[in-house]
């Protein structure tokens, strides 16, 4: 399988990465080189094989449903590009 230019632009949008027109062809070539490389996986017979979900089998750990942390709003927004009164600020989303 290989991707066309339109698909590359669509995937860039899905990934939320601005991809200028002039860069599409290069990215398309690189993605197609990768897809060509992984094509060999089609040789493997995977009938009846379970897909891996956990590399080390273990029972999911659960903790008590208790508040263990909090009251650190100032720390949480400390690295925010823009914040006000412990809120993250973003461009207007709803008109």
């Amino acid at each position: 399988m290989s991707v066309d230019a339109k698909t590359v632009s669509r995937v860039a949008h899905l990934a939320r990465i601005a991809l200028p027109e002039g860069e599409v062809a290069r990215m398309q070539g690189e993605i197609n080189a990768m897809l060509g490389f992984v094509e060999q996986l089609n040789e493997v017979d995977v009938d009846g094989v379970e897909p891996m979900t956990s590399v080390m089998p273990m029972v999911m750990k659960k903790r008590a449903d208790l508040v263990t942390d909090g009251g650190i709003a100032a720390q949480i927004v400390q690295n925010a590009p823009q914040s006000e009164d412990d809120y993250f600020m973003v461009p207007k989303v709803v008109e």
């Binding site: 949008h13 990934a15 939320r16 990465i17 601005a18 949480i76 927004v77 690295n79 925010a80 590009p81 823009q82 993250f88 973003v90 461009p91 207007k92 989303v93």
Partner: peptide
């Protein structure tokens, strides 16, 4: 939004795309 670089955009989607 929460940390790291931010590039301004006309709306939030453009901000995400330009930032990344």
């Amino acid at each position: 939004v929460r940390y790291g670089l931010r590039e301004q955009g006309r709306d939030i989607a453009e901000m995400y795309e330009k930032t990344r």
